[in-house]
Amino acid sequence: MNLIRNIAFPFVPVYYAVSSLRNTLYDLGIKKSTSYNFPIICVGNLSVGGTGKTPMIEYLINLLKDDYKVATLSRGYKRKTKGFQLADAFSSAESLGDEPFQFYNKFKKDVFVSVDANRTNGIEQLLLLENSPEVILLDDAFQHRKVKAGLNILLTTYANPYVSDYVLPTGNLREPRSGAKRANIIVVTKCPETISVIEKQSFLEKISPTKNQHVFFSSISYSEDVVSEENKKSINALTNFTLVTGIANAKPLVNFLKNKNLQFEHLNFKDHHEFSEQDISVLETKEFIVTTEKDFMRLKQYNTLKAKLFYLTITVTIDDSVMFDRLIKTFVTS
């Protein structure tokens, strides 16, 4: 893969020019963005791959759901349906996509969970609902500039910041680094839990935020238990299990488990992997399976796996959560 990306380097200027031109047309108003008179918060990134958008959306849901009618609107990556879909009791990972289905399973009636590749149409459909939402969270929509969000939250990982990356196809950036200027808030995700003030300052010098941008540092922590739909087990009591991952970067999870001196085999699939009949046949031979919450949403439909299928939850911690929460709530109420 690295060889192919290096070979593709001559195409980088072409991708850069096209994506820059597109942004310029939106900046000049030649291409139109639709604004709305109620709070819309966009959570996204400049790069492909896992920067922690799903945990951030869940953080915002938890922050706002008790005071506002909240909706999430996602593209619904790799779903089997088309157009606008609103989650209900008959929904599945196939009809919504794994991450929106995770939102629905976790929050049920607390939020509207919807998907539509056309975010403008998705917003219009949400507004037609009885008891329509007061706040909409756009999931992975930083490049979807047909909608002008009132607040843009940009995520970048501590290990692979956008300032050290290149645009596709050689790098992982969907657009040039200059796109970060559209962000109101930048959250550096997946930081070491022990990150120091000096390390934060060094990172800030790398990304050089504008004076109007707020930067926060966040880390993830893993639960001490694995859970299924009906049971819970202490992670320290597990022996010789199978870890199944279909996420962008499984390394932090693997390291967490190894640091606990747990014995396990790791079946590592690509992000948003669609499990085949052959995959399920292999998993049926395993005695105990631990997976991520996102992968659990795709696997729990298989009755042959239910008794042995568990997932490990994560919690997001933001370094100055008081300030972060205040910024979000101030925007929503303004």
Rank of each mutant, 00 (worst) to 15 (best):
I4L: 15
I4R: 14
N6H: 12
A8G: 13
F11N: 02
F11G: 04
V12P: 08
P13Y: 06
V14E: 00
V14Y: 03
V14A: 06
Y15R: 05
A17C: 14
S20I: 00
R22M: 10
Y26Q: 09
Y26S: 04
L28F: 09
I30A: 08
T34G: 07
I40C: 03
V43T: 03
L46T: 04
L46Y: 07
G49R: 08
G49Q: 03
T51E: 01
G52Y: 10
P55Q: 08
L60S: 09
I61M: 02
L63S: 06
L63W: 07
D67Y: 08
L73G: 00
L73H: 01
L73Q: 07
S74P: 09
S74Q: 12
G76Q: 07
F84S: 09
A89C: 11
S92T: 11
L96E: 07
F101P: 01
F103Y: 14
F107R: 01
K109V: 00
V113P: 01
R119W: 07
G122E: 02
Q125T: 00
Q125P: 00
L126V: 01
L127D: 02
L128Q: 15
E130T: 13
E130G: 07
S132C: 09
S132M: 03
V135A: 08
I136P: 04
K148R: 08
G150R: 05
T156K: 02
A159E: 15
P161F: 04
Y162F: 15
Y166N: 13
P169C: 08
T170Q: 14
G171V: 04
G171C: 05
N172L: 10
A180C: 10
K181P: 02
I186S: 05
I186W: 01
V187R: 00
V188P: 06
K190F: 13
C191H: 01
E193V: 14
E193T: 15
K200N: 10
Q201L: 13
S202D: 15
K206S: 09
K206N: 12
I207Y: 01
N212T: 11
H214F: 12
F217Q: 07
I220C: 12
Y222A: 02
D225S: 12
S228G: 10
S228N: 10
E229N: 11
N231R: 12
K232G: 00
K233I: 11
N236G: 09
T242H: 04
T242I: 08
G246R: 09
G246Q: 04
A248P: 07
L257Y: 06
K258Y: 04
N259Y: 13
K260F: 05
N261L: 10
L262Q: 02
Q263T: 14
L267C: 08
D271S: 05
F275D: 00
F275V: 10
D279P: 12
D279M: 00
V282R: 11
L283S: 05
E284Q: 15
K286N: 06
K286F: 00
E287L: 14
V290A: 10
T292S: 09
E293M: 05
E293G: 09
K294R: 13
K294T: 03
K294N: 05
D295S: 12
M297G: 01
L299M: 03
L299F: 02
T304G: 06
L305Y: 06
A307D: 15
A307K: 15
K308D: 11
L312M: 11
T313K: 15
T315N: 14
V322S: 14
D325F: 04
L327H: 06
I328Q: 13
